[in-house]
């Protein structure tokens, strides 16, 4: 507990300066999600500022992943799922019929809980996104995208000599960084991460967390995590979900040191969850 407090203390100074002047990147209002008859998310309204890390925390089944998947319309792939309310990215409602989900997902990348590289070469994993979006021609242009993406994901030095080897042959942490590189390769503005470290060991986790901290220079990052320590370490803002409702949202250090809601207090002090 001491260690957590110390970490948040370190972060708080930096966060305060960064929060100022950040424009709103994603603005959700009254978002409700239904799985058939069952309502999974109740009227979530939240603003996510750009070029920061926003962490969604809460116990299992609280709706944080569900809400995350609304931001790039991954929920579209589930037949029985329906979404009401609006989510605006840079002022455009992504649930507007005019919005093409394919273009949306090029702007809002996603990294999943379990590393899921394609069973292809490392190179092909990265270049798949740019290729289908027509962002680069095969050859030196594509080589550059692959190199830049892998460098930003901190994987270049480890794999530069074996780009033709299958991505599934890497270790778990490397696979997850490969997935991050794959998301970066299409040059998104927002990156969604759904518990990206839950399948990794502490060393690989630390590596990913460092990476997230570097990435927020360029991208808006939303991360769902079970680990409150992780939320405290990597995020500037945090939102606490409980039973499908957004309970509290604010600067991470405030949420962790001085939550305004009793449920948040109970959760972060380990009374439930």
């Amino acid at each position: 507990m001491d260690k957590t407090a110390e970490t948040t203390g370190v972060l708080s100074g930096a966060a305060a300066t960064r929060t100022d002047g950040h424009e709103i990147k994603v603005a959700a209002s009254n978002v409700s999600v239904f799985y058939g008859e069952k309502q999974a998310l109740f009227d979530v309204t939240i603003d996510i500022p750009g070029r920061q890390v926003m962490a969604f925390i809460g116990p299992s089944g609280c709706g944080k992943s569900t809400f995350l998947r609304c931001i790039n319309r991954m929920n579209d792939t589930i037949d029985i799922c329906s979404v009401t309310g609006t989510i605006e990215i840079d002022g455009a409602n992504i649930y507007d019929p005019k919005i093409d989900p394919v273009l949306l997902r090029a702007r809002v990348g996603m990294v999943f809980q379990k590393p899921n590289p394609f069973p292809k070469s490392i190179y092909d994993n990265i270049c798949y996104g740019p290729r289908i979006h027509g962002k680069a021609r095969a050859g030196s242009e594509m080589d550059e995208i692959v190199e830049v993406s892998l460098k930003r994901a901190g994987l270049w030095n480890e794999v530069k000599d074996r780009l033709k080897e299958p991505g599934t042959g890497l270790s778990g942490g490397q696979q997850q960084r490969l997935c991050i590189a794959r998301a970066i390769a299409v040059n998104p503005e927002v990156i969604l991460m759904d518990e990206p470290c839950s399948a990794l060991d502490p060393i690989a986790t630390a590596r990913i967390e460092e990476l997230i901290d570097e990435l927020r220079e360029r991208y808006t990052i939303v991360i769902v995590t079970h680990s409150m320590q992780q939320a405290a370490r990597v995020s500037q803002r945090a939102a606490f979900f409980h039973l499908g409702r957004l309970v509290e949202e604010g600067e991470t250090d405030l949420i962790f040191t001085n939550p305004s809601d009793q449920r948040t207090q109970d959760y972060i002090t380990g009374r439930f969850g």
Partner: peptide, 27 residues
């Protein structure tokens, strides 16, 4: 074919047809 592969393809912006044609069917 594990759903994670479909998610990965859709996540980088592949259309349904591309997801099936490029990833699911070959696997």
């Amino acid at each position: 074919v594990p759903p994670s592969i479909r998610e990965a393809a859709i996540g980088v912006g592949a259309s349904k047809m591309q997801t099936v044609g490029h990833h699911v069917l070959p696997l």
